[in-house]
């Protein structure tokens, strides 16, 4: 093997940087949107009304049964159809990611809310709080604290998953690296560089998740 040329990376840095910003933006929007949607879904799922909890369960299990690439294709196809004109990949992808992540975050939040001991619910009820007040003031603060490490771990997975927008050629970090790799014919250098960048960022994210764990649960 001969002639590795890493100067191609420095030349392409502005382009790659823009791609990385896109990846970060997608991760951020999907995380915030997914958390909010996940919160609603988790509350619906814990509802005592059978129909409501079943509908939420259907949503969550449905999204969790199919690959993210298929979800991306679904909305890439559906959104322009619903709007009635082409809207570009970005809007469809954002909708797909928020709806998809909502299903995963709702499972984390549900587990967190269920892990709050029943005495807490009873005490809240006994002190005169309503259902929503109990969730907002008593259950959620405890659930969020307990589930923070898992939510960050899910964020790292989400950041890796944003690379799948490659299939609709949205210019995130992965797609940008692939474009440079192919136009400059520097495939080895670019993909190795991209792997190093992802590895460092995801390892950092993993370290943050580890720091958020309560002391005695740390590995």
């Amino acid at each position: 093997m001969s002639g590795l040329d890493f100067s191609v990376i420095t030349d392409a840095l502005p382009f790659l940087g823009k791609g990385l910003m896109m990846s970060f933006m997608l991760t951020g929007i999907a995380m915030v949107g997914g958390l909010l949607l996940g919160l609603v879904l988790a509350i619906l799922r814990l509802s005592n009304v059978r129909f409501v909890s079943a509908a939420a369960a259907l949503y969550v299990n449905g999204f969790r049964a199919i690959p993210l690439i298929l979800v991306i294709f679904w909305f890439y196809f559906l959104v322009p159809l619903a709007v009635g004109r082409p809207v570009g990949a970005l809007h469809s992808v954002i909708i797909a990611f928020v709806l998809f992540e909502g299903a995963y975050y709702s499972e984390i939040l549900r587990a967190g809310m269920q892990s709050v001991r029943s005495g807490q619910w009873q005490a809240a009820k006994a002190s005169g709080l309503g259902y929503m007040q109990t969730i907002r003031l008593v259950v959620l603060p405890q659930a969020l604290r307990k589930m923070a490490p898992l939510m960050v771990t899910q964020g790292v997975i989400l950041f890796q998953d944003t690379s799948l927008v490659y299939v609709v050629s949205l210019h995130d970090f992965m797609t940008s690296a692939s474009i440079v790799a192919n136009t400059q014919n520097r495939i080895v250098e670019m993909y190795v560089f991209a792997a190093v960048v992802y590895f460092i960022l995801c390892t950092l994210g993993g370290a943050i998740a580890e720091r958020l764990k309560p002391r005695r649960a740390r590995a």
Binding site: M1, D161, M174, Y191, Y198, F199, G206
Partner: peptide, 26 residues
């Protein structure tokens, strides 16, 4: 474990498909 968990699977596919054959002996 950390190497395989911290690189997106899509990129891992590309590494095995496009990069590894280039790095091996001819």
């Amino acid at each position: 474990i950390s190497l395989f968990r911290n690189i997106p699977l899509l990129l891992q596919m590309f590494l095995w498909f496009f990069v590894v054959p280039e790095l091996l002996p001819d």
